[in-house]
């Protein structure tokens, strides 16, 4: 099954290798891995999706914690969260066939970000299934896909969950307003979930 981890790591050379090497060592395939800056200076945020046995979550998280550069690990698989992926898709399209693509883009709430005489570039954001849906429809329509670039999944837990580890470390730049100290605000979270369910795309 697919596991999703969010790892906050030190922004230093070689940290990505250490994380990736750990999955290699455990003989677990990484499905996607996104890295970028977090809200804290010097701390990067990774979202790692991997395919492993249902019981592997604990061991993967514990092994990640054994890496000195890893500050916090969250196994978000079982928790309520928002997951998104961004994709750029370049399709072959002439002035004659463009309008079809425009229609599809409209339906999928995607955007055209580049238009050339013989191609168009689509930007789409959403859960994986939505992106795969667009790709499938493009294929079925006979639009030739020239290139696809996907970011892989990035996730964030719902509600007012925040990083306890960063608080404890007092990482420079981290201000923790008192109202955020409550780790989970259940009711607010539920409301947001309900809203999101309606919006789910």
């Amino acid at each position: 099954m697919l596991h999703t981890f969010v790892a906050l790591v030190e922004d230093k050379p070689g940290v990505l290798t250490r994380v990736a090497s750990l999955f290699r060592r455990l003989n677990i395939n990484i499905v996607s891995l996104t890295v970028g800056h977090s809200e804290k200076v010097g701390v990067s945020r990774m979202t790692i999706v991997c395919d492993a046995s249902p019981t592997a979550g604990h061991r993967i998280a514990a092994s990640l914690y054994k890496l000195e550069n890893v500050l916090q690990v969250d196994d978000v698989g079982q928790l309520s969260h928002v997951a998104r992926e961004l994709a750029l898709i370049k399709v072959a399209a002439t002035p004659k066939t463009r309008s079809m693509v425009f229609e599809l883009v409209e339906v999928f709430r995607a955007r055209i970000v580049d238009l050339a005489p013989e191609s168009m570039m689509i930007e789409i954001t959403g859960v994986e299934s939505k992106i795969e849906g667009l790709i499938q429809v493009l294929n079925e329509n006979g639009d030739r896909i020239l290139e696809i670039s996907r970011t892989g999944r990035m996730v964030m837990r719902r509600g007012q969950h925040t990083s306890r580890v960063l608080e404890a470390m007092r990482v420079p730049g981290l201000e923790t307003p008192d109202e955020l100290k409550a780790e989970e605000v259940g009711s607010a979270s539920d409301v947001l979930m309900a809203e999101e369910a309606g919006l789910r795309d």
């Binding site: 019981t55 604990h58 061991r59 514990a62 092994s63 914690y65 054994k66």
Partner: peptide, 8 residues
Amino acid sequence: VDPAEINK
């Protein structure tokens, strides 16, 4: 002492 050893 090593959580990764539990249930390994």
